[in-house]
Computed example of a mutant assay.
Amino acid sequence: MRTRHLLACTVSFAASVAILAPLHAADTPATPATTRPATSRPATTQPVKPDPKTMSSDQMLGQMLRPATPSQPKPLQPLVDVPTTDKTSGAGAVKPNAPAVATLREGTYIIDRVGRLEKTPDGSQSQFVFEADGKSLREPPLVIVPNLKLMMMETAVTGATRDLKFRVSGMITEYKGRNYVLLEKVFVVPDPTQF
C-alpha cells in the first residue's frame, strides 16, 4: 500500500513538472541579440547585477545559492560560550584577596533574593547588592536595568527613614564582564522591630 502511494506521488510530481516546464520557459524573457562589436562595450570592474524584479525564480535561486564573494560582508558568528569572570570580583573587588567569581549565565533567574539598592562606584547606575554576601563575596552586585521596578525602589529609598532591604526576582543578563538584572518583582522587606 505504501509503495503504491509513493509511486502515485512520484508520477503526479513528474506530470506537474512536465506541465509547468513550458509555462516557465514562456515566462523567461529572451535576451536580445546585440549588433555592437565587443570592443565598444565600456570596461567595468564590477559585474552588472540583474534587476531582482525581472529575474526568473531559477535565476534568483541560483544567485542566492552562489557562494559569497570576498568583498561581501560575512554574517555574524555566534559568540564562543566561555564563562567570564565578573569584573567586580577578584582584583576588581574593594576587599583585598577577594575570590574571582564567574558571571552568571544570561537567562538565569534570581528568585526572592534579599539585598539593598546602591549606586555603582562611579555613580552612573543603580545596582542590587546581595544581603547574604557580606563576608564570602561570592555574589558580585548586579547592575539594575532601568525599568518601573527600579523607579519604585528609588522612590522608596528617597522617602525612607531607615536602611531599606528589598526582596527581588528577575532575569539575569550579561554584558562586558558584568551581570545585569531585569527586575520583575520587588517588595520592601518589613522592619522586624515593628512586629
Rank of each mutant, 00 (worst) to 15 (best):
I172S: 09
A93V: 04
P67G: 10
T35P: 05
K87R: 14
V11A: 13
M171Y: 08
V145R: 03
D58S: 12
A91G: 04
G92E: 00
K165V: 02
T28K: 13
E131V: 01
M171I: 15
D81F: 08
V189N: 06
E154Y: 01
K74P: 04
T84V: 11
S56V: 01
K74T: 12
R162F: 01
V11R: 08
T54Y: 13
S136G: 14
V82L: 07
N147Q: 08
T173A: 12
S136N: 13
K135P: 01
T85V: 12
E174Q: 11
K149I: 04
A160P: 01
A38L: 11
E106P: 07
G134C: 05
P192K: 02
P29Q: 09
K165D: 03
Q77M: 03
G134A: 04
S126I: 00
A26F: 12
V80H: 02
E106V: 03
K87D: 07
Y109K: 12
S12L: 08
M64G: 14
L150Q: 00
E139S: 11
L142C: 06
M64L: 15
R167N: 10
R41E: 07
I172C: 11
T34S: 12
V17D: 04
K74S: 09
A156L: 09
R113M: 10
N147M: 09
P140K: 00
P42N: 12
G62Y: 06
A100I: 07
R66K: 14
K176Q: 10
G115W: 00
P29W: 06
S126R: 03
V145E: 13
V80S: 01
V188R: 05
Y180I: 01
R116P: 00
K135N: 03
A68K: 10
T108Y: 13
T39E: 12
V11F: 14
E118C: 00
